[in-house]
């Protein structure tokens, strides 16, 4: 049996999705109230990280393997860049072209053009990045061969 005791596991099961929902709220309402892509993305990553901590690596890693995470990292960053580049059609790099076409209504979700979309892209990027940092640090192993010390990443146990 990997991971921690049944108490921690059960509490994690109760709360992981709640944390995820809160992160999603911060991201999607980032242009309306306190929050944003960075804060929300970190909290989204937390819901995965506590699952790894509670259940042990094997259970969770196959839900989001390292290779897939590394791809998502690139894709999130690329999505932000593409959003910005499409602004070229609106005249300038980073111009808010969606808002020019469809302004929406202030204080509502669909109101700030590319800003919520950019928040989502950043959240994806930050979430996956933090997950990868955690993964890298958690799977780091120090091995000694004579007086040579090696740090290598291995699969999480």
């Amino acid at each position: 049996m990997t991971g921690m005791t049944v108490i921690v596991k059960t509490i994690t099961r109760w709360t992981a999705a709640l944390i995820f929902l809160y992160g999603a709220y911060l991201v999607l309402y980032g242009h309306l109230s306190v929050g944003g892509g960075f804060a929300g993305g970190i909290i989204l990553a937390c819901s995965y990280v506590i699952m790894i901590l509670a259940y042990g690596g094997k259970e969770t890693i196959h839900a989001l393997p390292k290779a897939v995470a590394a791809r998502l990292d690139s894709i999130g960053a690329l999505a932000f860049l593409i959003l910005a580049s499409l602004g070229m059609f609106g005249g300038f790099f980073f111009s808010n072209w969606i808002r020019d076409i469809w302004p929406g209504q202030q204080f509502r979700v669909f109101s700030a053009g590319i800003i919520p979309l950019a928040n989502i892209a950043i959240a994806l990027k930050v979430c996956v990045s933090l997950f990868l940092i955690f993964f890298i640090l958690a799977s780091l192993r120090m091995t000694r061969k004579g007086d040579k010390i090696e740090f290598r990443s291995e699969e999480v146990d």
Partner: peptide, 28 residues
């Protein structure tokens, strides 16, 4: 205009809830 039960946020909520159900197979 706009109410506490804003249509936009409800649609978004349905989507987020769908995503949660997709990602967490053992929640709650």
């Amino acid at each position: 205009t706009g109410t506490a039960w804003d249509l936009q946020s409800i649609v978004l909520g349905l989507f987020v809830a769908f995503l949660t159900a997709l990602l967490f197979k053992e929640a709650f």
